[in-house]
């Protein structure tokens, strides 16, 4: 029963989780902290446990949606299978949808309407990326106004003008943090 509940919960999160990452978190929180699933007597996790998972997700590589699915899948069932199940479930709905929509749009990419729509969307996407950056400019990421801002500026110059690979920058920034703090 627990596996079926887990499957359904994460299919739901994968299907209705628009907006990616942090927007998805509220949906995940609802399913694992607030809802008492069929056959259970209490929610899967306490709010404290959930907060810990978010912190762990932020410190681990990869998308936060995957991280939380893998972690919660294991914690709820106590088995690796639960982990695999939740991870697949969270990806499956969008995998199918994206394949279908991508195929349709790719076929019609020379259509007048499709062209017009995409040229209208492009400036919006630029704004979306900018907002992702703005949202991260918080106390959590910049605990002081000296060293952290310096790291950010140098990293920007290195990726934009020295054309260093972002992976290299993450590694260098990690070493810098270890040495500076």
């Amino acid at each position: 029963m627990i596996y079926i509940n887990l499957l359904i919960a994460y299919l739901k999160i994968g299907l209705f989780g628009f907006g990616g990452g942090y927007a998805m978190l509220s949906l995940i929180q609802h399913e694992v902290v607030e809802v008492i699933h069929h056959g259970d007597t209490q929610p899967w996790l306490t709010l404290q446990e959930f907060t810990d998972i978010v912190a762990i997700s932020q410190m681990s590589p990869g998308p936060i949606g995957i991280n939380s699915a893998t972690y919660i899948g294991y914690k709820v069932t106590g088995s690796v299978f639960g982990s695999i199940l939740a991870t697949i479930a969270v990806c499956l709905p969008s995998f199918i949808l994206v394949l279908i929509v991508g195929k349709i749009l790719l076929k019609r990419k020379d259509n007048k309407y499709v062209k017009s729509v995409f040229s209208a969307i492009r400036p919006v996407v630029v704004g979306m990326i900018a907002s992702a950056a703005l949202l991260l400019m918080n106390k959590e990421n910049f605990p002081d106004y000296t060293k952290s801002i310096a790291i950010c500026v140098v990293a920007f110059l290195l990726v934009r003008y020295a054309k260093l690979h972002p992976i290299l920058i993450v590694i260098l920034a990690g070493i810098t943090g270890y040495l500076l703090y």
């Binding site: 400019m137 952290s148 920058i169 990690g174 943090g177 270890y178």
Partner: peptide, 13 residues
């Protein structure tokens, strides 16, 4: 400490 360095760099990325 390592993550204190990584976080602001990620914003730059």
């Amino acid at each position: 400490r390592i993550f204190k360095g990584i976080r602001p760099a990620v914003v730059a990325l």
